[in-house]
């Protein structure tokens, strides 16, 4: 049980809320309060659009505890439109082939449950665009 940790991370997990550096405008995810680019203080909240593309990916068939009911599943590095690279599960894939460069969008899904009695943990995943750009 890591109730406090789930609670602390909820904003970034549910909605991809990160930070923007007030000094050099770099967008930061996950939030870390210090700009990884210029090293200065960066605490201004920033709402990411959720759009990005697959930078790389792999399929997990032997999952860690708490994720086994979803196997096989695909985990990707997603390059967000605003810059940062995020690791997340891909969902709603159907039999569609994943490829590097696939445009994806963020959705909030169930990440895991802590057993039958524990809490349900929700967070970001990415899926192929529901409505491909015209």
């Amino acid at each position: 049980m890591e109730v406090s940790r789930h609670w602390r991370l909820k904003k970034q997990r549910y909605a991809l809320q990160g930070e923007v550096c007030p000094h050099c405008s770099v967008k930061i995810f996950p939030p870390r309060d210090i700009c990884p680019d210029c090293g200065l203080d960066a605490r201004t909240p920033f709402q990411f659009s959720g759009r990005g593309e697959v930078y790389s990916f792999t399929t997990v068939r032997d999952a860690p505890e708490g994720h086994s009911e979803q196997v096989p599943y695909t985990v990707a590095l997603v390059r967000l439109e605003e810059g940062p690279l995020v690791t997340a599960q891909l969902t709603d894939l159907d039999q569609q082939d994943v490829e590097i460069g696939l445009p994806v969008e963020m959705v909030t899904r169930k990440l895991r449950s802590d057993g039958e009695r524990g809490m349900l943990v929700y967070g970001y995943k990415f899926r192929p665009l529901l409505r491909p750009a015209a």
Binding site: E69, Q70, Q89, T91, T108, R109, K110
Partner: peptide
């Protein structure tokens, strides 16, 4: 619903 979906999501 998919395996990672429920009324909340």
């Amino acid at each position: 619903p998919g395996i990672d979906e429920d009324v909340i999501t």
